[in-house]
């Protein structure tokens, strides 16, 4: 960042990150103009998206870099299992499943005296 005025220094990294983000979204927009729903190409992109997002979510739960890492893996697995069980038993009610999972983890965290 040498050569740039001092006041610009914090903003140049933001500009670089914005440009990169814009490029990926722009590429998506251009490609989307050529892709129709319910076609094999659309299905492939949807599958890649599901694999990417699903993988990131599983990583966030079981290999967390956040404060979640302070909880035992078993507790997180129990919370996820309870969330899924309640979700399907309640005829796929998202809020029931989500908050059952969060509540289970909160109880386990309190039980173990973490935090």
């Amino acid at each position: 960042m040498s050569g740039a005025p001092a006041w610009m220094a914090p903003w140049l990294p933001v500009a670089a990150a914005f440009a990169a983000a814009l490029l990926t979204r722009g590429a998506g927009i251009v490609l989307s103009g050529r892709v129709e729903p319910e076609t094999p190409v659309f299905n492939w992109f949807a599958c890649v998206g599901q694999a990417l997002v699903g993988g990131l979510m599983v990583r966030a739960i079981f290999l967390p870099t956040s404060a979640l890492a302070e909880t035992p893996t078993l507790d997180r697995a129990i919370a996820i299992a309870v969330g899924f069980a309640v979700f399907f038993l309640s005829k796929q009610r998202l809020l029931f499943g989500t908050f059952a999972g969060v509540g289970t983890l909160a109880l386990l965290v309190a039980f173990r005296g973490i935090g």
Binding site: R76, F84, V102, L105
Partner: peptide, 29 residues
């Protein structure tokens, strides 16, 4: 303790929605 537990909300929420996509290729992916 609350701050830690809530961190599981978004990943769990998104996984629950994603298992609702009724498409074999989506499930496998």
């Amino acid at each position: 303790s609350i701050g830690i537990s809530i961190l599981i909300l978004t990943p769990l929420y998104l996984l629950l929605i994603m298992v609702s996509v009724r498409q074999l290729s989506g499930y496998l992916a």
